[in-house]
Structure formats: C-alpha cells, structure tokens
Amino acid sequence: MKKRGIGYASTFYGTGYGNGFPDISRAIAELGTDGNIYIYVGATEVGQGAKTILSQIAAEALGVDFSSIVFICEDTSITPDAGTAAASRQTYNTGNAIKLASEKLRNEIINILEKRYGISTENIEDYLLQVAKLNGDEALRMDGIFTASTTEMDAETGQGNPYYPYTFSVYGIEVEVDTTTGIVEVTKAVCGQDVGRAINPKLIEGQIDGGFSMGLGYGIMEDINLQSGRIKHDRFTSYLIPTALDMPDIDKIIIEEPEATGPYGAKGIGEPVLVAVAPAILNAIYNAVGVRMKEIPVTPERLLKALKVKERGV
C-alpha cells in the first residue's frame, strides 16, 4: 500500500570558523591599465558560484557594470589568502573584504578625478580608462580585509558568541511510502531559506536544489557501509546517490531580511540549504506510516523491519 505523509524541519546554521578563531578574508581591487577592474582573491570557485556572487558585490560597490569585473582566484602567487571555501563563509566574509577593497578603490578614483581633472562625479564608469592611464604601467590597487566577529566559548559552560551570523531554514516535505517495498519517494517539497539578502536569486535556488538532493541522499539512500574499517560501498554501483528521478520539484521561498554586517545584507547559504532535508523526510515518514526512524539512512530494509515491529505491536 502507498501512504503519503508530510513533515517539517526548522534548523539554524552559524557561519564561519567560529569560536573566536581568526576568520580573515583578504582581497585586492585593482583598476587595470586596460580600464577593467581586477579582483584578486584566494576564494575558490567549487561550483557554488563564488566567482559570480563576489563579482556582483564588486560591481555594486564600485558602481560599475558587471562586465567590467575580471575575477582572479586561481593562483596563490598573485592572490591574497581569503580563507577556505567552506563554512558557508565566502559570500559573507570574502564578500565583505571585496566590498571594502572596492569601496576604497572607488573613493580613490573619485579623488583622482576631482584633484586631477576637477571632475566631481559619482559615475566613475565613463572615466575608468582615463584614470587607468594616469599612472602608466602601474595599476591602482586597494586592499580589503575582513575579520568575522565571534568569541571563544567558556571551557566549562560553553557560553559565548561562537558564530556569526546565523542562517535559518524551514523545509516542508511530502513523501509517499510503499509499505510493501519499503521504498520512500519524496513527492513534493517547499523550501524556505533565509538568505539575509539574495545577491543572485537563481544561484540561491540552485543551491537549494543541490542541498536538497544531498539531504535526500543522506536521509534515505547513502551509507558507505563500513565493515571492520573497510568501505564496502566504494563505487556508484553500491553507493547510491540521487538521480534526476529521485528529485521532486521544489517550491523555493527566498526570505530576505538583510543582516547589517553582511555585504548588502547577505548571509551564507551553502550549507544551511542541506540541513533541514533529512529530518523533514523522517517526520514525513512518521506522518505517513507511524514509525519513528531513529537511524539514517532509511533504506527499504530498515523501514520494512520497523513496519513489521510496529505491526506486531512491540
């Protein structure tokens, strides 16, 4: 028999290394001699969209068109250290460093225009090449450094401000459980994601889809199957991850409530988008068939066993 149920989960996620550990991002904004803006930063594009998001922040802070930004992040010998592409920290931390460097560069360009040419303008776009040529081969460079604000917790009580900022997620999920096979199908989802401010809504939606898929795998499919320290599921024939057929269509709700310390109010979302998925599925399974699955993944074997226990009324 196929039974449907719905479940919810709400979660929070603290951004950054945390606990007072120096969480520093550095960036350089440069007016190249070709009139383009070069951003040098050691922040990795792992597929999350860092290059695009961080370029948008630079364009906004400089007040120039997006197409003027050249983003360079692939070489340690020419980029400053911007910390790791993890902890959902690049948009917030490195975004802030880039914003600072870009604002400094913009102010410098405005100063030069005023001092050298007597031009008082807020629109620097049209003068970039003119200013760029002033120094000959020497490019105009400004740096930006941002350090996240957290404190080390008390060793005895764990009291303190360990992370900043926090991002919230609320996911509602519908499942269909086949009580004969034990197979759980996720049929519908509504994902509400707090983002502070959406720098690029489409990229956020992509993160929600991707996080959902990983959370779905975590909840009902994935296990490396350790036996005496050996990974038994070490290939895609046995370690199953979701395919296009396992994914539901998702209604995404992007919640904007700007965070003052974030670049234009933005917060990191790379990890938050994942964490509410599996627990919402577990609550939906209970809603559908009345069994509490306390161990994940909820494989068909595990679920059938739990259903049998319930039937026997143990």
Partner: peptide
C-alpha cells in the same frame, strides 16, 4: 543556549509561516 543574543536578521518565525502556507497550497491534503 550559548548565551548569544540574536539581534537582527532572525526571520525564522516568518519562514515557518510562509512554508506552512505554501505547503497547504502545493500539497494535496496538506
């Protein structure tokens, strides 16, 4: 629980309400 006071950008209540509303619309028998 760590004694941190959450001062801004805490839209959790709103997010819960919006998700519930959309679930009622999207899911038959929600």
């Amino acid at each position: 629980a760590t004694g941190q006071i959450l001062e801004e950008s805490i839209p959790l209540e709103r997010t819960i309400k919006e998700v519930e509303k959309q679930m009622k619309k999207s899911v038959v028998g929600g």
